[in-house]
Design a protein around this nucleic acid. Structure first.
Lengths: 225, 225
DNA sequence: CGACACGTTGATCTACATCAATGGTGGTGG
DNA sequence: CCACCACCATTGATGTAGATCAACGTGTCG
């Protein structure tokens, strides 16, 4: 991890949330740079603050017995990390790891609290942000409980596409291991494979190494239900 | 459903959240009464407002193909209902049904929005409330994905005990069908029995009709992990 | 060129859903 | 008051998705 000058112009909150934020960030003039696979924070760490992602790709995950972990969600430019730490507990309940080189603005807790206390609009918007995250979480809960593995993998692909978009060649805009896909879909490595083969022969996706291209999005949607 | 005078003294927000709220509620002087099994609102309904539960028991659930539904969470006195409707969408994403006679204060959206706009403390506390709900949701997501059915049923029992407490005889403070337990644990009717039998012969729980008494909470916790 | 990790595939094994049969209970009408 | 029916509880039998295990192939680095 490395500190660099803050690229204020592309900050999520600057453009999407509140104008005042721009000045506040400008005061800090500091972002942090994480390399691929570098940990941003870990489950159980003291909550020191919150991150706003400028660019890159991140997974939020939680340990589950030895060597099994579950990926809660993926994040990209414009997202907020570590906000789950706000709710009373002073330990992060999850871990965040960079899937790719990631630039993020770090705001200390104290600073954020002061902001929230004094800036009503920010609090209000953050509340709505939480509300929509909650809806997403519950949607996913239902899916994990009642959908078969194929459907969950289809959902994973759609989510990846939505969060990371496509690169110039039309592939999903992040390189991700099959293990990570399995962890998000709540299944195993081997099963991901076998179903990737199925999806390929059904003409739904094409893979090239670890890159994935979605050919027939409609079909994927149908699998999700 | 029936409107009655608001019992201000026992309102969640009055006692737990902000003092000013007491006066605001007093202005409305209105609660709604729901009978057992009565629907409070349904998935897809227009969001009209938010409810604060004074007393009773409620399940929040979401349809999943014909005749299958998933219970997202249980709520009792002091909880907020319908707040998920706040996040942009103007349709409720879930349904709420009374598990028992339930008294709830209804606040229209417009009224709530005005409140939130003018009352920073309320917004701030509601934000924290969402944050902790989010943590719970993610916890449950993980459990549904990776825990076996027995563990999920154990979790269900612990959650029920936590939310509804115990009645005078030491039984879990709500009468609930096995179908509902199955819907919460993400399993089927029949499986719930078989595992209830196991749990009974293991001396973990005792059932009397639909009432459930937890004997060995420690053992339940161990099953959850 | 060997070795070691990781990708890939097939073979088994099990937890749980699903289905089907039986037993109990309460409600209704004769 | 009893008999019948309908509906839910309970249990056993069967089927299957997908985890787990193990073997084999392939790329990569010393």
């Amino acid at each position: 991890m490395q500190d660099v000058l803050c690229d204020v112009t592309s900050c999520f909150l600057c453009t999407n949330c509140i104008p005042e934020w721009r000045e506040i960030i400008a005061m800090k003039k500091q972002t942090r740079l994480f390399k691929k696979n570098e940990s941003i924070f870990s489950e159980g760490d003291d909550v020191k603050g919150i991150y706003f992602i400028y660019s890159g790709a991140v997974k939020i995950h939680k340990q589950w017995s030895d060597e099994k972990d579950m990926i809660i969600r993926f994040s990209s430019a414009g997202d907020i990390l570590g906000h789950r730490g706000l709710g009373g507990a002073n330990k992060y309940p999850v871990s965040a790891t960079a899937l790719d080189t990631t630039k993020a603005c770090f705001i200390t807790n104290q600073f954020l609290e002061t902001l929230l206390r004094s800036n009503h609009d920010l609090t209000y918007k953050l509340m709505h942000f939480y509300a929509s995250e909650l809806q997403k979480a519950e949607q996913r809960m239902r899916n994990l409980a009642h959908m078969d593995v194929k459907g969950r993998i289809a959902e994973t692909l759609l989510d990846l596409k939505k969060v990371f978009g496509l690169n110039d060649d039309g592939f999903i805009g992040v390189v991700i291991t099959r293990q990570d896909i399995a962890s998000y879909a709540g299944t195993t490595y081997e099963t991901v494979f076998k179903l990737f083969n199925d999806l390929t022969s059904e003409g739904v996706i094409v893979t090239e190494g670890k890159s994935i291209r979605v050919i027939n999005e409609e079909k994927l949607r149908k699998m999700v239900g």
